Simulated assay, not measured.
Amino acid sequence: MVHSGEQAAPTLHDLPEAGAEPDHSDGSAAYQFLGTRWNLQIISALLDGYTRFTEIALLLNLNSRTLAERLKHLELEGIAVRRGHNQIPVRVEYELTAKGQALREVVSEIRKWALQADGQTAMEVIGETNGGRYAEHDILRIR
């Protein structure tokens, strides 16, 4: 029994039909994408000019497998593009597409918010999440 002011739990009839396109008009797909672990950090690194796979891995203190997985996902989403160079040793670089570059303002606003939310302390805490790598390389600097 539902009391006044309470909402009933959704039933199977309330759920979208199998195969139906989800409604993302509320931005939920973008929130999920941006909230996926490492996406924003990798995008931020690319915006700051870090392009080589090994540079990004060192900067974020991220293992190669995880970084390769996340970069592949960014490629599939049309955010980043991979460029391989035929040389020895093999050199792989990544760059943001126009869709990825469009996130510059989003990243900038997050950086501003971090500073305003708690001043330098917020920036230090964010930087320390991966052994201080962000702070060392100024990855969260506002441009």
Rank of each mutant, 00 (worst) to 15 (best):
Q41M: 12
N63G: 05
L115E: 14
T129G: 08
E95F: 04
E77N: 05
G131D: 09
T11H: 03
P89D: 01
I88Q: 06
E105Y: 00
T129S: 14
K112E: 10
I43F: 04
T121H: 15
N39V: 11
Q87N: 01
I126F: 05
R143L: 06
L40Y: 05
L115N: 10
E75C: 15
P22W: 14
F33T: 15
E93R: 05
E93L: 07
H137K: 15
G132T: 06
P16K: 00
Y50R: 06
H13L: 08
Q32V: 14
V107K: 02
L140F: 14
L74K: 07
L67Q: 12
L60Y: 07
Y31H: 03
S44K: 02
T11K: 11
V125M: 02
L12A: 15
D23Q: 04
P89Y: 00
I139R: 03
V106C: 06
L76N: 13
N86I: 00
E69R: 15
L15E: 09
A98K: 14
V107D: 04
I42Y: 10
L12T: 02
G119A: 14
G5E: 13
G119I: 02
L46R: 10
E55H: 06
V106E: 04
V125A: 05
H24Y: 14
E128Q: 13
D23S: 08
L47V: 05
I110V: 11
I42D: 14
D48Y: 12
I79T: 02
V125C: 02
G27Y: 11
H24L: 14
I43H: 10
K112N: 07
S108T: 03
G27V: 09
A18G: 01
K72H: 12
V106H: 14
L47Q: 13
R65Y: 02
R104N: 06
A102C: 04
D23G: 05
A80T: 10
G35L: 03
Q101R: 02
Q41H: 14
Y31N: 00
M1W: 02
L60K: 12
Q7N: 07
T51P: 00
E93I: 05
E136V: 05
H24E: 12
L71S: 12
L67V: 06
V2Q: 13
Y50T: 08
L60T: 09
E128H: 09
L46S: 02
D48S: 14
K99M: 08
V90R: 09
S108M: 03
V107E: 07
G131V: 03
I88S: 08
Q101N: 02
E69M: 15
E95M: 12
G78K: 07
P10T: 00
